[in-house]
């Protein structure tokens, strides 16, 4: 059974329909890449899977670990292992990353019936994961994303992912705005997570990232539907030929 199975998903913002029948199956152990022109619904799909109430689902289903999760609250989906790396991470003045992550890690542990981490256990975990993204100590004590550069925000998303060790990670343009070094770091973070029991969806505009994170499948989301799926070579074709040819499909 697939880890994630999306059937005929329709979703809208206000009365504007954005997703118009998405179908997608993802097995544990796989990495899928979603590409597609701007404004065609990639972030919308990610948001709907994570449970952002900004979007209204009008039809279809999202089956995760064998359960339809569309009625499940956002925090419960997260506790079930769904992680969204935001295209635009939100700035939260006054909440330090340390406190934010400690709260999140311990709530997730509680959900799974585990004892909360003690202060020192938590700090140890944090040190370990900070290394994964080569994060400076200084960043971890600052307010969440406040005044972070674009690249720092993206690294912070990968750091959080590493801390929470999700089952299904959706990374929405985590590579945008990254320099080559940061790109390598982010890719290392993702590959670090890659295991046989979890799956990753990488939303990107650039073939470049896929040199580091080699996907099992590439999908093209166009006008609210997945119009083309294929092996990683599809990304190369898109890079060369753009999206024009899709219109003839």
């Amino acid at each position: 059974m697939a880890l994630l199975s999306i059937r005929n998903l329709h979703a809208s913002i206000g009365d504007k329909e954005i997703l118009r029948g998405v179908n997608l199956d993802i097995e544990a152990g796989e990495v899928h890449s979603i590409m597609g022109p701007n404004g065609n619904g990639k972030s919308t799909l990610a948001g709907v899977i994570a449970g952002n109430e900004k979007y209204t689902v009008t039809d279809g289903e999202v089956i995760y670990k064998g359960r339809d999760i569309l009625a499940m609250p956002v925090d419960q989906r997260a506790n079930e292992g769904i992680f969204l790396g935001f295209q635009y991470p939100v700035e939260i003045p006054g909440v330090s990353i340390t406190n934010f992550m400690r709260t999140a890690v311990n709530e997730q542990r509680k959900y799974r019936g585990l004892d909360p981490l003690t202060g020192s256990q938590f700090l140890k975990l944090m040190e370990e994961k900070k290394k994964v993204v080569e994060m400076t100590a200084n960043l971890a004590n600052r307010s969440v994303n406040e005044g972070f550069s674009g690249g720092e925000k993206k690294k912070n998303e990968i750091f959080q992912m590493a801390m929470l060790d999700p089952t299904l990670a959706i990374l929405d343009e985590t590579d945008s705005g990254l320099d080559i070094d940061a790109l390598r770091i982010v890719a290392t973070g993702v590959n670090h997570l890659r295991r046989s029991d979890n799956a990753i969806i990488v939303i990107t505009h650039y073939q470049r990232l896929l040199d580091y994170i080699v996907p099992d499948f590439v999908h093209v989301l166009y006008e609210g539907r997945i119009v083309k799926s294929g092996p990683k070579e599809l990304a190369l074709k898109l890079e060369k030929e753009g999206y024009e040819w899709l219109k003839e499909l």
């Binding site: 900004k54 925090d75 709260t103």
Partner: peptide
């Protein structure tokens, strides 16, 4: 801020604690 609440809850934080975190951060200043 609803998007800030969503961000916190997406990490597994309950709505109640997410609200409190944001309100407390507001006061902390």
């Amino acid at each position: 801020d609803n998007q800030a609440l969503f961000y916190l809850m997406q990490r597994g934080i309950s709505p109640r604690n997410a609200r409190t975190l944001l309100l407390y951060a507001f006061c902390d200043e």
